[in-house]
Nucleic acid binder design. Sequence first.
RNA 1: GCCGGAGUGGCGGAAUGGCAUACGCGUACGACUCAAAAUCGUAUGAGGCAACUCAUGAGGGUUCAAGUCCCUCCUCCGGCACCA
Length: 812
Amino acid sequence: MYPFSKIEKKWQKKWFSSGVYEPDLQSAKHPFYTLMMFPYPSAEGLHVGNMYAFTGTDIYGRFKRMQGYDVFEPIGLDGFGIHSENYAIKIGRHPVDQAKTSEKKFYNQLHMIGNGFAWQEHLETYDPEYYRWTQWLFVQMFKKGLAYRKKQAVNWCPSCKTVLADEQVIAGECERCGSLVVKRELEQWFFRITDYAGRLNDNLSKIDWSEKVKIAQRNWIGKSEGALIKFPIVDSEESIEVFTTRPDTLFGATYMVIAPEHPFVEKNKSKLTNLLEVNKYLKEARDKSEAERIEEGGEKSGVELKGVQAINPANRKSVPIWVADYVLSGYGTGAIMAVPAHDERDLEFARKFKLPIVPVVTTKLNDEFNATGLYVGYGTLENSGQFNGMDSEKAKWEITKFVGGKKKTQYRLRDWLISRQRYWGPPIPMIHCDKCEQAGRGERKDMPGWYAVPEKDLPVKLPYVKDFRPTGTDKSPLASVEEFYRARCPKCHALAHRETDVSDTFLDSAWYYLRYPSIKEKKHAWDAKLTKKWLPVNIYIGGAEHAVLHLLYVRFLAMALNDMRLVDFEEPFPKFRAHGLIIKDGAKMSKSKGNVINPDDYIKNFGADALRMYLMFIGPFEDGGDFRDSGIQGITRFLDRVWKFGSKTKFAVKSQEGIEKELHRTIKKVGDDIENLAYNTAIAALMVQLNKFEADPGAVSKEQYAAFIELLAPFAPHLTEEIWSKLHGPKAGSVHVATWPKYDPKLLVDSSVTVIVQVNGKFRSTVSVSRGSGEKEVVKIALADPKIKQIMGSRYAKKVVFVKDRLVNFVV
RNA sequence: GCCGGAGUGGCGGAAUGGCAUACGCGUACGACUCAAAAUCGUAUGAGGCAACUCAUGAGGGUUCAAGUCCCUCCUCCGGCACCA
């Protein structure tokens, strides 16, 4: 066994002191910014899944560095936030103290895995020098009208005791702790991400991202094209506007449904003849949790607003108005026209409450009826007055025009709720002044009384408070710290009140990539010149679980900053790849299952290089795979053989052509594979190469072995560095800044090729012919092959399929 | 329900429409050893002495040729989920 432990420690030290992985940020000629999503520093330490992701990113970076790029691969910690805070609470330590412990442990481990990190530029989101700028960003968003307060029913996690953004609720459960989320009516800070829904959606087609992440974002943004149509109210000036994607079915709208929260209900209570019944329903709907709604599985409930009627603007017939919670207040106008003949939900509702069903679209094709016999596709209109016989697609806009409606693109995306009633985050840098509010003054007209903390006063430091635990009220623990919340109004200098909520962790991580190159910049969040030089990020890698969390927020913020002319790109990550998940025994690693793999033991027993390579060899990087102890043996054997080959073999003086050709094929294969993040097959190719070397060790030259070591260098950085220094002496410099070997395309092609011979499409034999041989010649050689001769017997080929240099197929 | 992705040896997995099972693990046998471990060598999809036949979730199809393309279905994983 090679002395990996000694070797790895030695080179980690040398790399760190020599700065081999530190690009010259100011004057680099070929900047290449490679980035992996920075981790939450859970105090349990680095998880083998983190290491997997980091290694995959590092290999790519090392490859690019050897290709001559000035690679920048920074690292930091996403240390603020509920995750870290919950852990601190659990073990009974203060988050500030725990952060220090976690940081040390995490960074130690990150040194051990052998990545080419630019350690000088590390950052931690809880560092006041960092969150000062997170707060500054909030202020910019506020000044541009992109941050605002509003009161509405929001997601509340009873266990984390804070509100959550929609993206942080996964199937009704808290993204962090898994508790069932309930609704609370609260006034909170939001970011106007919905203003960017269209761009967030449309830009997806321009960026090179893992397809599944793009699809997830598209689904989440939820673009749909339709129309807004007004339904007048009988004997009233009022009307109710609906959003529909099927205005062609307007003649079939036999009733309307509005959400329980729709203002029309409150406004018209005096007209209702069944007010008691309606009030009862409203109360029930309000008290129902998200979880209960999901549990009901779509069983419809509702109540008619008796005493009011609307008019279908297409046929002027009056239709009843119902209130039902299957219509959501937050989407569209919070009101729908119900067309039970062509919409499943409306049909279910109509059947339950015995409402009329009028089909208005028919089709000759018999293929788009669902199980209930309902026709949901497009076709030809009927029961639609003058539009009868018209095609649905055309009728959509004709009918919209006819009733004075307008085209509308609707998105499902909601605004990003930024406030958190927690301690461990950057305080939202806002001050509220009662006096100014009463006077109708404010920094923004639409938000009287509110002022951003002036830039010179940033950061608003998070105080070290004893009782940091979440309160469970709608206030953060900071709300009871008078020294913190007492402030002067920036405008009138009256005694005012600071905002005491902190911002969402996802705001910290929405801009960290901008800070890395500019970490030494003290006066601005980022340096304009450095940013222009290094951004956008060349390749970004991370988990697909962030498809609609981090990856959506970060794009949104970049677009907003682009609009403010603070950055000159819209998309921070033109190329993103989602890495796979490392599972254990078929299940996701989790502490509760007791199957979490800590890399430390494996590094101790097998070395970081072996663990790195094993992780990469499990399967395609974008798929992940199952971690099993036995697999690491194969890699250990391989690395050991590489080591032995170098120390034992007497190198050939002159390179031999066969081996040279083989090597050039490997150079091409490994390079191509790394470019595609196909690390598992790159490693397989290296193994094949070593097998060939070992088959004839005396024929391998020192240069050939050295080239092989270079190919291996991104995967096993320590071992290759050690071998490299032994091969070339101490003055040779690092293998990691050596030039990636080039292959000679001429050497990739052989003068003779193996051609497959088939009879009736079945493989029967192969023959060797010189490259480029014509059909006649190859057929002659193939027919002379004894095996083919025997199979063909006295038969003759009716047809011959010939593919040059590949195959010949005799059809008899 | 809708939208994705995937089903290949005992296992992880390879395969521009053209030699299925590369590479590795495991297993068996052999060498070395007093012995074991480690290491090295050989074999290893199934059936068959062999020629050969059958095998890429199931069933159809296109093609000289299908793991790969098309249709139907099954299973698993992921995302969204009353979004009008």
